[in-house]
Nucleic acid binder design. Sequence first.
DNA 1: GTAGTCTGAGAAAACGTTTCCTGAAGGAGT
DNA 2: ACTCCTTCAGGAAACGTTTTCTCAGACTAC
Lengths: 336, 336
Amino acid sequence: MPRPPRADRSTRVTIADVAARAGVSLSTVSRALNGNPTVDPALAERVKAAAAELDYTASPVARSLVLGRTQTVAVVVPDLGNPTFQAILRGLSHAAAADDYHVLVADSAESVEEERVLAGTTRRRTDGVILCAPRLPQDELDRLVGGLRPVVLINRAAGDVPHVRADYRTALAAELAHLHGLGHRRIVFLAGAPGSVANTARLEAIASFVAEHPDTHVTEIPCGVDFEAGAAAGSAVLASGATAALAFNDLVAMGLLSAVQAGGCRVPEDLSIVGFDDIPFARYTTPPLTTAAVPATELGVQAWARMRELLEGAEPGHPLTVLPELTVRGTTGPAA
Amino acid sequence: MPRPPRADRSTRVTIADVAARAGVSLSTVSRALNGNPTVDPALAERVKAAAAELDYTASPVARSLVLGRTQTVAVVVPDLGNPTFQAILRGLSHAAAADDYHVLVADSAESVEEERVLAGTTRRRTDGVILCAPRLPQDELDRLVGGLRPVVLINRAAGDVPHVRADYRTALAAELAHLHGLGHRRIVFLAGAPGSVANTARLEAIASFVAEHPDTHVTEIPCGVDFEAGAAAGSAVLASGATAALAFNDLVAMGLLSAVQAGGCRVPEDLSIVGFDDIPFARYTTPPLTTAAVPATELGVQAWARMRELLEGAEPGHPLTVLPELTVRGTTGPAA
DNA sequence: GTAGTCTGAGAAAACGTTTCCTGAAGGAGT
DNA sequence: ACTCCTTCAGGAAACGTTTTCTCAGACTAC
């Protein structure tokens, strides 16, 4: 004896209801609604009408199960509070939506452990993951991506995994050259998270610049990645006697700018400041912030493009590297 | 004759593999892994060991189908580029993650039509939707939420649907009182999107304030919701002869601030400016922005709390209304 | 008129779980 | 020793689709 249908389930309309209404089989409804040409046009019309009357749409979950595809991708970012990741997410979300894909977002709260587990768990319920994990050690990343495919990395590389990234090194070198050209010889660098690739790249750029310009001194101050860190570093920067400060990113630069101005220091007359990222707000500080423009939204769009190729089984395109453009505004000027 | 298993499916390990390895039935594996007490502890241990060896975890999709629950909620916002919605999303995402729920995010790109369809399509693949749709006309909203339940609204109300909102009216009244107290009698309001509830609430607050203070004139300038709009309104504001400007939000205020300062206008000596929202950057403009602090992150956290209650079948708590706190900083001063 | 081709619709398997129901084995009570 | 519970594992239905296979009927060609 067949078991009666479950009681509490709400009265959702299923494909069977449509079939009954149209007087055809389940298979025919499915075919008609999916535009399969092997169904008689007149019949297909009748089925569609029935579906419309019942306001039926196929259950995405059931569909996902049988099709083996969820029409969803996961995006793992370290911090949703950071304008750069927000921009990436926005670009990615728009691009994916245009291709009828949905986006599952996970914030790893700057924790390496979370990055690892979130990547895994979100992968299971999606068709692929776009991973932005600046802190994850390289060997762990290499190991992790194997079980994650398809995966696209942002600002990281690993084996043959497609990725999109900004060339931090070259851009930072351009910033240094800009400051050097203005006569700055004592520069202070407000460092970000010690282990992160972004910070490492900046350090490398500084090292090679200093090697080529022995007249220039760049000292590193451990700082952080947000306003507060930048503001807190204010006194240390002033005490250093440097004529210019290179902030890890725009947030730090803004925090620093605000702090030193509050102390009577004039920017750029007494101190030049450069940021990194060119977040939307950088244009509206007083004076406007000199920075390197990372096209974060575009990075998100391109990350989706890579993921799409992977999902369609196409040959993954070349990894994309964009060069952040030096954007000179008002916070930099000739050395005192 | 049974059909052979599909060929191309990748070799994912299923519950059947675990069953085979442990030498038990599918049912037993399922029960053991779900901690069902009707399975012998020793056997359960064996099953768990087998599962661990095979690195098995149940398919979330299959699980969703049979359980009728996806462990995911959708969040629909008008613009991921807006710091306020970003903060809401962040609070919500963290709170949901703490309860082992995932977040599907959809950006309606400020389009009413998109708001409507996104709410519907994302609802199908999730257990509920948190809707932030400031532009959707009330009658459409009322109609829409019926088919969406469970649903939580942000900054809107509809029938018995739980919601969390900021009290724009009262907060704007406080800002007006602040300006009035400083002697401002000619004030200009930079309006946001005409149809939106947020704009309507501000207009109402202004109307009732003016009614009570006949000596004060508030003129409305159609503007917008972002930097560019605020900057573009700069000349109109100066031409109006007003001594204070009330911006629709902090972005507009920052755009305005930047534009008028560039024209030599001193803030707050020549013109006082107040924003709305207290986005993180408001603290770091020069001078720092006077504004009303909307606890957007907390709004997100509370929105999740409401959704969670709904999902657990608990009685929905009272709708939450928070009062944005007037935060006086440097952009407001005595009227000239 | 019969064989062969085509068109198009239905039956049923499959996707990977959970859970209800049935029934075997073992222990307790008379 | 026989019956009656209890405990616990397996079989199979169900979730809602898609798709392969099969087959009935209509048509064409000889």
